[in-house]
Design a protein around this nucleic acid. Structure first.
Length: 239
DNA sequence: AATTACTCCAACCGCTATTAC
DNA sequence: AGTAATAGCGGTTGGAGTAAT
């Protein structure tokens, strides 16, 4: 029972745990009377053996009007994914874009649904890119040190269609999936700073060749200085 | 039917930012 | 300007419900 689960620490001590219906009613009454600001006052005046902080949280996450209940819709999920990509774990900020949803709702939904989902997608993506990578290096014929321009890079992307790899594995990957990878997002975040002509993508393979490709960008600045963005690390080898 | 494992979500905690005095 | 109180935020935990064994 909820009332048993809620920890009471003696008659005058603060209650913790699940809220009772009577407590909810009491809180709503006092918030209606005094507004949703002075939480310590409300906690004391209402006689609830709860902290102001606890009252505030209960109101914001459960009792306040216009809260949406039930499943997050597909549309809401899409928004959450997009905004999380943009802002990271800024749950309150994301929640403001989803009327009726609390930061707690979104945080919980992310942890229990989306994180797993996206991890699975990422693993799937990683697997497919590795196959495409092998195909690319195989066709280049040199796995030790390969230079290519952005056009060549695009050709990797082009290969990421539906195709039979030299190893006989079948793969399929859309460019949107490709571009939506968190790894590629990192790479493309840099792109506005680089013009296509000035950009050279270099791919190195070690003696093992295929599993530890290293990718970095190189460009020439206006004053003729050549810089190498090696801090980007490996694009592909991010297991 | 009993037990264990797992999922989901409400609530708590600790910290930082903002506001009131 | 300094301090205390309050509000807000994000991470974590605990427990209720459910599925699997």
């Amino acid at each position: 029972m909820a009332c048993q689960a809620a920890a009471t620490q003696g008659d005058n001590k603060l209650r913790k745990g699940t809220w009772l219906e009577e407590e909810d009613e009491q809180l709503v009454t006092f918030v209606t009377l005094f507004g949703d600001r002075k939480w310590d006052f409300i906690a004391t005046a209402s006689g609830l053996k709860r902290t102001g902080k606890s009252c505030r949280l209960r109101w914001l996450n459960y009792l306040r009007p216009n809260l949406k209940r039930g499943q997050i819709s597909a549309e809401e999920e899409k928004i959450i994914i997009q905004l999380h990509e943009l802002w990271g774990n800024k749950w309150a900020k994301i929640a403001r874009r989803l009327p009726g949803r609390t930061d707690n709702d979104i945080k919980n939904y992310w942890r229990t649904h989306l994180k797993k989902k996206l991890q699975a997608q990422e693993e799937n993506f990683q697997c497919k890119v590795n196959i495409a990578k092998q195909d690319f290096l195989y066709q280049k014929g040199d796995t030790n040190s390969l230079n290519c321009n952005m056009g060549d890079y695009k050709s990797v992307e082009d290969k990421v269609g539906t195709k039979e790899s030299p190893l006989g594995q079948h793969y399929e990957l859309s460019s949107s999936t490709y571009l939506n990878s968190p790894y590629e997002t990192r790479l493309y975040d840099w792109m506005p700073e680089l013009s296509g002509d000035q950009t050279e993508m270099k791919i190195h393979g070690d003696s093992g060749g295929l599993d530890s490709c290293f990718c970095y960008l190189k460009w020439n600045s206006e004053d003729g200085d050549t810089s190498i963005l090696d801090s980007l690390g490996s694009l592909w080898d991010m297991n």
